[in-house]
């Protein structure tokens, strides 16, 4: 039963609070997932610890080629940030596709990752960016690659009753690098993705230096198409290779039947289209 609501003003204060409540308090950011989960009794807690007023968490910064997004930064702020739009346009695209403007105005990017849904739009883009989550707790700070953040559907490595994901960081895209975020949804807004795909691709001369392809929801968490990535690495890319890579990517995915958002079979076939389109788009922006 919820008994208290605390507005933290600093990270330290928040950590002290988590400690005092000893597992009975839970971090809340935008609340767009947490408020619904609370009223559906999917989560229970005695105290909500609100981190949206913590100034240090509200920043989008660039440091030594890394972009750092604080835990209180919303999807809208990311979408409208010039820094993100130029240095990680796929994330601006992904955050911009979340729910609706009202949702994006409150929902946070970090919350999107911590909530650990397999097709969370920003999380999918962040994985393609090779993002790392900064986790702070009483014992200290650790850095966890986003791929290791998932313990299962809706289950994050961060225990929101004891730890705080304070920020998420990733390398800014450089010249010669391109990216894309594509999404298939049943309507133009307020629709969770049937599929989403994010690609970051680095060209060296004409060759693919490296590429990251992330697909969702085709596994319990956003899934890297490692085989397809390997296939493209070092290659001089063209439409044929892209088509082949898309096929390989599909063979790595195991989408499920969703009564709401498409059969496994349809999703599989669409995945090929989306991966192909994302690769093509990433290639165009890299050149």
């Amino acid at each position: 039963m919820l008994k208290d609501y605390i507005l933290a003003t600093s990270i330290e204060e928040a950590l002290v609070c988590l400690k005092t409540y000893a597992g009975q308090a839970r971090i809340i950011a935008g609340g767009t997932d947490a408020m619904l989960d609370l009223s559906a009794k999917k989560i229970t807690t005695s105290c909500l610890l609100d981190i949206t007023k913590v100034k240090e968490l509200k920043k989008i910064e660039s440091m030594d080629g890394q972009i750092v997004i604080g835990a209180a930064v919303t999807h809208s702020e990311v979408k409208n940030s010039d820094l993100i739009r130029t240095k990680a346009p796929l994330l601006a695209e992904a955050s911009g596709s979340v729910g609706s403007l009202q949702i994006r105005n409150t929902a946070t990017v970090v919350g999107n990752v911590v909530n650990a849904q397999p097709a969370a739009d920003a999380a999918v883009a962040l994985m393609a960016l090779g993002a790392v989550v900064e986790i702070t707790e009483d014992a200290g700070t650790s850095y966890v690659p986003i791929e290791e953040m998932y313990l299962g559907v809706g289950k994050s490595k961060v225990d929101s009753t004891k730890q705080m994901a304070t920020s998420i960081r990733f390398p800014a895209l450089l010249p010669g690098q391109g990216s894309a975020f594509v999404r298939l949804a049943q309507r133009g807004a307020l629709a969770l993705p049937m599929l989403n795909v994010a690609v970051v691709l680095s060209l060296c001369e004409d060759k693919v230096e490296w590429v990251r392809i992330v697909m969702a929801p085709v596994a319990p968490k956003p899934l890297r198409a490692l085989e397809a990535e390997k296939y493209l690495q070092g290659a001089v890319i063209n439409d044929e290779l892209i088509a082949k890579a898309a096929k390989i990517a599909v063979s790595e995915a195991t989408p499920r039947d969703s009564a709401l958002r498409g059969s496994a079979e349809y999703r599989k076939e669409m995945l090929e289209v989306l991966v192909r389109r994302a690769l093509q788009q990433a290639l165009t922006t890299a050149r």
């Binding site: 609706s100 049943q186 309507r187 133009g188 807004a189 307020l190 629709a191 969770l192 709401l260």
Partner: peptide, 14 residues
Amino acid sequence: NNGFHKYMLPTAMD
């Protein structure tokens, strides 16, 4: 499809 998020009635975008 028992709510607005699951029942795909058109939004302004559609």
